[in-house]
Design a protein around this nucleic acid. Structure first.
Length: 273
DNA sequence: ATAAATGTTAAGAA
DNA sequence: CTTCTTAACATTTA
């Protein structure tokens, strides 16, 4: 459930509740539920993986983490809602999620230019942020919510494969052209994800995530827990180019010559057996 | 049945 | 003061 496109789907499915006055509030969220009673839903918004219920006066921020779920105009029979909002237009039930109140205006708290699904997405800003962190690994960069809000582990794995970039590549060792390509690919894949998820065909479009073989060269995919984010990376060690630069390595006590990008099997030959 | 996973945050350690 | 590591949270699927 939790990557950005899934939150956009929720926002769209719940759109008919915007403008509704909340007449019944319940749930086991550790917030003051009484404050929501009688308020009006001004708008339903999203930023990355955050689902935002904007009320008159304050907002509710919902994050589904790994296991969260929701029902609109219906309920789960097996689980107690973390938060349930009811009114004349329908009801919204949220389960196993993190719920917090935001007192400040949302436009003051969120930078919409960073949301990979926003119409205000700013690719140039993302490129600048990537250029500013030369030691950052590609696998960590894609998951950085301050750069790509809404990108999750599936998007990470699929994007890196699409542009044939090794997850351990260092941003500073890549040509600027390649960083720009990465920014473009995250945005593009987010919309593919959205369309596929709406059509219930997301999974069958996975090229590497939770897959066994490289669809391109057929060798077994590598699976490793990589980066400071310690998330699973599925990748093809043959097709995905690694850019490494010794000047960003951990303990170089002497000045070392800058090494050129390490390119592995650029042409990705077929595996012979 | 046991493990791992589309994720983040808080607290403690280094 | 960072930066890193670990635990906690809580549900489904393999």
């Amino acid at each position: 459930m939790p990557e950005g496109p899934s939150i956009v789907i929720l926002r769209e499915e719940a759109a008919h509740l915007a403008g509704m006055r909340i007449t019944h509030v319940s749930g086991n969220a550790r917030i003051d539920l009484g404050r929501l009673q009688g308020r009006t839903i001004v708008a339903l918004r999203s930023w990355g993986k955050h689902f935002l219920i904007e009320l008159d006066g304050f907002s509710v921020r919902v994050h589904f983490l790994l296991f969260g779920s929701y029902r609109i105009d219906e309920r789960r029979d097996n689980m107690k809602p973390r938060l349930s909002l009811r009114g004349a237009a329908g009801e919204l039930n949220l389960y196993a999620c993190s719920v917090r109140l935001i007192e400040e205006p949302l436009d003051q708290v969120y930078d919409w230019r960073v949301d990979i699904l926003s119409e205000r997405w700013d690719a140039a800003l993302a490129r600048r942020k990537l250029a500013a962190q030369p030691a950052l690994l590609a696998c960590d960069a894609v998951l950085d919510q301050d750069i790509f809000a809404g990108a999750g582990n599936i998007i990470k794995n699929e994007v890196l494969f699409r542009i044939r970039l090794h997850p351990l590549s260092q941003l500073g060792a890549m040509p600027a052209r390649r960083r720009a390509e990465l920014v473009r690919a995250v945005r593009d894949y987010a919309f593919d994800f959205l369309a596929w998820k709406k059509a219930y065909v997301l999974r069958k479009h996975w090229q590497v995530h939770a897959q066994r073989r490289c669809p391109r060269c057929q060798i077994p995919l590598s699976l490793a827990v990589l980066g400071r984010t310690r998330r699973r990376s599925f990748f093809c060690a043959q097709c995905q180019v690694l850019y490494a630069d010794s000047s960003h390595d951990a303990p170089p006590d002497a000045a070392q010559p800058r090494s050129a990008a390490v390119r592995r099997n650029r042409s990705a030959p077929r595996q012979s057996s």
